[in-house]
Amino acid sequence: MTLSVPNIVILIVIGLLGTGIYALLTVRNLIKVVVALQIMVKAAMLALVLAGRLQGQENLGQSLALTVIVADTIVAVVGLALAVQVRRVVGSLDLNALTTLRR
């Protein structure tokens, strides 16, 4: 695998995705979970831009990434709003405190 620009970007995409998944599996703080989700989606955005570049359709690829930013920000906002409410009601941001619903 030569060290060309697309290859480096692919490596970054895989790295970001791996970081996000690893963080989701290990982190127990709700705000950090939202951050981990953001990292995963950032990998997807980079992949979309790269795909546009490889196909010679940079405009389309970048506009897709912009749309993703908008949708993804709303998800983050809703997630953080939930986190605020969890902190108020449960008194902790720890996911281990949120295990009343079993089975």
Partner: peptide
């Protein structure tokens, strides 16, 4: 939905 996005990037690429 993050997985779906990566899938879309693969198809687009």
């Amino acid at each position: 939905s993050a997985f779906v996005l990566i899938g879309i990037a693969l198809v687009f690429g």
